[in-house]
Design a protein around this nucleic acid. Structure first.
Length: 457
DNA sequence: TCCACTAACACCTTTGAACCGA
DNA sequence: ATCGGTTCAAAGGTGTTAGTGG
């Protein structure tokens, strides 16, 4: 798997007693993350994954699901996901392929999705796969639900972070490890552009069962509108034509017959069928750019099993995201060690900066709904946590990490490409939030503050 | 005219409460 | 009273389609 390991303890001061990344922190190097359903992801990636984004928020499909190993069973970890722009371009779908349509739009408010189980013991994360099923994408920059905001017709890839921390306050003192999977990159769209993607989604997403050829789709349309009997073949024709023209026979068969054999299960297709980069606009693009990485290649599979190496701290190179705008692709700023099977992102991974807090306070996981006002952690990283119904967890403010050089408790402003910062994000606020029970009427507003503000690195 | 986007729609799965029997 | 299984309705997730607006 492609691992992107960012290790950078934040040494701005002594860790609080609640610090989780204690003497065992060095063991973090053993942490390993693998993507579940890599074949499914790959089949999408080979075509050029598209993810629908809507105003109310849309789940991803395939959704992010990972397996973790190498965690300390008795230590607590926090899992997060954010979306990183693949490059600095906007795209358009033209004549069955994606083309660059100009510069990327300014980054929307950066948001990080915190897994609702966070924080949880390493044993918890390792005992089963970790699903980010409920992660939602939106194009509504004013979203109040904590969904991850993306721009349509832009390319992104999810980035997974694991932090050893007892609670979100400890995050500051902890080591972040970041993972990405090349096959999870996608183009955010408001409507599907590539009919092959539509077909794949319908075939594999149980919620779209009604649109399958063998389903009741035709009947429904016939009942609804007699004219659709004419339209229905039209849609099928389009899909079939695309598949016939662009997809090798074995791929086509695997997409259909394989699925029919076991509903909902990804067909066991031949390596050759999914390896053909001809059907990956992104792969082709990468080749044009001279990038060596080839997720669709045979090496890609090895990535899932390869033991991840932890880059030594010395390998880090200062990386500031404000340079991003000058570069056509942040990936180009990504580390120099760049092989076909692995890519290191040699940039500083600033840990999230959270306010100082009184270590005498009860730990997050120990407190329930706080009975006392001053410890009313109403702020939340992401509304998803609130939905998880874990008041002890949701009560933490997580702020933009930003500069490691910054003194504790000071927050960098947004980068020029970012939206204006919320007005109350001030240094003083830190104290307010922790010791004075800063109340926030709208919890979701807190998700405006990115834990990993990639546009601010 | 083109294209990105939105809302309404029907179909489907998921979820959780209610119910029942052991 | 408790537990486990079943049923059913509501909620929510899908892609499609027609329409809108820049």
């Amino acid at each position: 798997m492609q691992s992107l390991r960012d290790l950078k303890p934040n040494f701005n001061g002594p860790p609080p007693p609640s610090m989780a990344a204690g003497p065992d922190a060095y063991l973090q190097g053993n942490i390993r993350m693998t993507l579940e359903d890599p074949e499914l992801w790959k089949s999408f990636h080979d075509i050029g994954t598209e993810m629908i984004i809507t105003k109310p928020g849309r789940r991803m499909f395939p959704h992010c699901k990972v397996n973790l190993s190498g965690l300390i069973p008795c230590a607590k970890y926090i899992l997060l996901v954010d979306m990183v722009p693949e490059d600095g371009f906007r795209y358009k779908w033209n004549k069955e392929k994606w083309e660059v349509a100009g510069k990327a739009e300014p980054q929307p408010p950066c948001r990080t999705y915190l897994h609702p189980d966070s924080p949880a013991l390493g044993s918890h994360w390792m005992k089963q796969s970790v699903s980010f099923l409920k992660l939602k994408l939106t194009n509504n920059t004013l979203d109040q639900h904590g969904h991850i905001i993306l721009h349509s017709m832009h390319r992104y890839h999810p980035r997974f972070h694991i932090v050893q921390a007892d609670d979100l306050f400890s995050v500051r003192w902890s080591v972040f490890q970041t993972f990405t999977f090349p096959e999870t990159s996608f183009t955010a769209v408001t409507a599907y552009q590539n009919t092959k993607i539509t077909k794949l989604k319908i075939d594999h997403n149980p919620f779209a069962k009604g649109f399958r050829e063998e389903g009741t789709c035709k009947k429904r349309r016939a009942n609804k509108n007699p004219a659709c009997l004419e339209k229905q073949p039209k849609r099928s024709d389009i899909v079939n034509r695309d598949l016939e023209e662009d997809i090798p026979q074995d791929f086509c068969q695997s997409s259909y017959e394989g699925y029919d054999a076991e509903e909902g299960e990804l067909p066991k297709r031949k390596e050759a069928a999914i390896k053909d980069e001809r059907y990956s606009p992104w792969a082709a693009e990468r080749d044009q750019r001279g990038r060596t990485e080839s997720p669709a290649g045979a090496d890609a599979r090895d990535m899932y099993n390869a033991e991840q190496l932890v880059p030594a701290p010395a390998s880090y190179q200062p990386y500031r995201f404000h340079e991003y705008g000058k570069s056509p692709s942040p990936s180009s700023s990504i580390g120099s060690s760049h092989s076909s099977s692995e890519r290191f992102e040699s940039r500083v991974s600033d840990v999230a900066t959270v306010p100082d807090h009184d270590s005498s306070k009860p730990r997050t996981h120990e407190i329930g709904p706080s009975p006392c006002g001053p410890q009313d952690y109403t702020g939340v990283l992401n509304m998803t946590m609130a939905q998880a119904g874990k008041p002890g967890v949701i009560g933490h403010h997580i702020y933009s990490p930003y500069s490691a050089e910054q003194p504790l408790g000071q927050w960098s402003g947004p980068c020029p490409t970012q939206y204006p910062p919320p007005h109350h994000l001030t240094a003083d606020y830190t104290t307010q939030a922790v010791h004075h029970g800063y109340h926030h009427g709208n919890v979701a507003e807190w998700s405006q503050y990115p834990l990993f503000s990639y546009s601010c690195w």
